[in-house]
């Protein structure tokens, strides 16, 4: 550098500090996550649940659809039935593993779709503001006006059953909340000076959105979306329970809970198993998103 400047410059602070080490943002997130044992445990649990659903055909000891009148409603640990049997004598463990496939699909796919669509709407609404914002957000408010379960039931009822329709229903239900979170985050970022600084360089709106806005909106939206996974699973189970989702005999946690309901006085423990699966999975997802939120929180 030129002498004139070097001459005038005071040493920039903490250049000499030996403890200051360079670490990327995600590196920092990992550092904080590393010691958060609850979150790590839940992540491991989720991976386990996902793997067991993926590998259900290899893991399941029996055919989940093969009923046996002789072995109806056996208790947990009866002979070779590790988790007992249901009201048609089908192996609970196998059904649980297979049911996880549908339930996880219902939990994850609609959330991903809704995050992309709702996030896009939210960012556009938040960045452009005024009339665009009014148009998008008021439309979202219409959907918001109904309780999510009621909305899901209504859409599902008009679309009819089936896995695809159920996913579509859930996506529609999840878009408004994600859109709202994305919009709030975007309008906060939009008013920050660094966006003005970017505009002052003559950058196009697209460039600013991608370089400066999305990256800052992403973490709150992702954290929020991860809480929706459990909600989506529960909603899906609820729809199946009401007979609006997948139809019997497909193995699905919600559907299993629904059909076993009549047997609750006969085999209360077995009847509760699908419910426990839903509960554990959704709590795990919730705790992970809590942990993520803390780990991603940068004190600027």
């Amino acid at each position: 550098m030129t002498d004139a400047v070097a001459n005038s410059l005071a040493v920039a602070p903490s250049q000499s500090a030996p403890t200051a080490r360079v670490r990327s943002y995600w590196g920092g997130v990992w550092q904080r996550l590393r010691y958060d044992y609850v979150t790590l445990f839940c992540i491991a649990l989720i991976i386990l649940i996902v793997l067991s659903a993926v590998f259900a055909p290899w893991l399941a000891p029996f055919d989940p659809y093969k009923s046996s009148m002789a072995n109806r409603l056996r208790p947990i640990g009866y002979k070779q039935f590790l988790l007992g049997t249901d009201e048609q004598g089908r192996d609970m463990l196998s059904r649980l593993l297979y049911g996880g496939r549908v339930s996880l699909l219902m939990g994850i796919v609609p959330v991903i779709l809704a995050t992309v669509i709702g996030g896009l709407f939210g960012v556009v609404a938040g960045y452009y503001g005024r009339k665009v914002n009014m148009g998008i957000m008021r439309t979202m408010d219409i959907f918001f006006a109904f309780p999510s379960v009621l909305l899901a039931v209504a859409i599902s009822g008009s679309l009819g059953g089936g896995i695809t329709n159920q996913m579509l229903t859930l996506t529609v239900v999840l878009i408004p909340p994600i859109c709202r979170v994305a919009e709030t985050a975007t309008s906060q970022v939009r008013n920050m000076d660094f966006v003005d600084a970017a505009r002052a360089t003559g950058a196009s709106t697209t460039s600013i959105l991608f370089t400066h806005v999305l990256i800052n909106v992403m973490s709150p939206v992702l954290v929020y979306a991860s809480t929706l996974v459990s909600i989506s699973i529960i909603l899906a189970s609820g729809l199946s329970f009401l007979g609006l989702g997948v139809s019997p005999p497909t193995a699905d946690w919600g559907l299993m809970l629904s059909t076993l309901r009549q047997s609750i006085y006969v085999q209360p423990l077995v009847s509760a198993i699908p419910g426990v699966a839903i509960l554990v999975t959704s709590i795990a997802f919730n705790l992970v998103s809590d942990g993520l939120r803390q780990a991603m929180d940068v004190k600027a």
């Binding site: 040493v11 903490s14 403890t19």
Partner: peptide, 10 residues
């Protein structure tokens, strides 16, 4: 004043 305040961690 040249430099910056010390690192309170060390």
């Amino acid at each position: 004043i040249a430099g910056s305040p010390p690192d309170l961690r060390a």
